[in-house]
């Protein structure tokens, strides 16, 4: 077994440490962190739902200067619109992913349910959602669902942004549930058996033994899904979510500044994705530990 150099420092025995805590992130036990993340997700979802801006209108304020290869002035002039569109995209991502974290949890629990009547349809639903394109799901929710007459109207007619959030929530929720399952399965059987031999109760077994080992295994996948959902969110443009792609499309069709607009788009994604990926890698490293 190779030994991680960070782990071999001599540790003084008299350093006061509270016993019986799991791995910590910034002083917070990982289990509490996990539960906190779910609560935070629900709160974020609520905030986006309640206070998130609806659609944004984009005006034509300036046209492209045809004498230059790349018109920086144009980029500058449209930056405020672009940022508003980016904000819509971030709302959709945060809302959608917050929903996904919670839906994933529910799906994972249903799938683990000892009752076949619950676990089988759930497994099928997860497979179904994972094997159909997000765009199709989006179209179904936006164009198909409102036509299903027997469903109460409040449950089938959604705004563009709400539809995108729901679609992202279910799509990535299915992926998240699989990540949770893999994370839980990654905890060796011997750990459960040791918990039984120590006579730990169900709650303590999950909170002290299983989740602190499963969550660090799940986080990298969740982080990747978060970034992936951010990159998928512009699909919302196809159902008129006024996100960056919608802005670029509509503005390009009226000003023909495609190069400038799509360059802005690319830079915008880079500006968000790169720091996010960097932060995620750091988080992963912090909660990793030497396995036996």
């Amino acid at each position: 077994m190779s030994v991680d150099p960070r782990m071999t420092d001599p540790v003084s025995t008299d350093a006061p440490r509270t016993p019986a805590t799991g791995r910590r992130i910034g002083g917070i036990p990982v289990t509490i962190g996990g539960v906190g993340a779910v609560v935070f997700s629900l709160a974020a979802l609520f905030v986006v739902w309640r206070f998130g801006g609806g659609s944004v209108r984009f005006e034509i304020r300036e046209t492209r200067d045809p004498s230059v290869a790349f018109d920086w002035g144009f980029v500058w002039a449209y930056t405020p619109d672009f940022l508003r569109a980016l904000w819509v995209l971030i709302q959709a991502t945060v809302g959608g992913f917050a929903l996904a974290i919670v839906i994933g949890l529910v799906l994972a629990l249903l799938r683990r349910a000892p009752v076949k009547l619950l676990s089988m349809p759930t497994a099928f639903f997860i497979e179904f959602v994972r094997s159909t394109p997000l765009l199709v799901q989006l179209f179904f929710l936006f164009f198909g669902l409102p036509r299903i007459g027997w469903i109460p109207e409040s449950l089938r007619v959604w705004s563009s942004l709400a539809t995108l959030i729901i679609a992202l929530g279910f799509h990535y929720g299915a992926y998240c549930s699989e990540a949770y399952r893999a994370g839980i399965d990654s905890v060796p059987k011997g750990q459960w058996e040791a918990a039984t031999a120590l006579n730990l109760g169900t709650l303590a077994t999950w909170a002290q033994v299983v989740l602190p080992q499963a969550i660090p295994n799940v986080l990298p996948a969740l982080g990747n899904f978060l970034i992936a959902s951010f990159k998928d969110a512009p699909l919302g443009a196809s159902i008129n979510v006024t996100c960056v792609l919608f802005f670029a499309d509509t503005t390009a069709s009226r000003t023909f500044a495609s190069v400038e607009l799509y360059t802005m788009l690319g830079l915008g994604f880079l500006a968000v994705s790169l720091p996010a990926a960097f932060l995620l890698r750091r988080l992963e490293r912090r909660i990793g530990y030497e396995r036996t």
Partner: peptide
């Protein structure tokens, strides 16, 4: 194969059941 809890120190492994059980 021991089945120690890898995310806890030796003393935490030992004190877990007395505290939680």
């Amino acid at each position: 194969h021991f089945n120690l809890f890898p995310h806890m120190s030796a003393v935490e492994n030992i004190a877990l059941a007395p505290v939680k059980v």
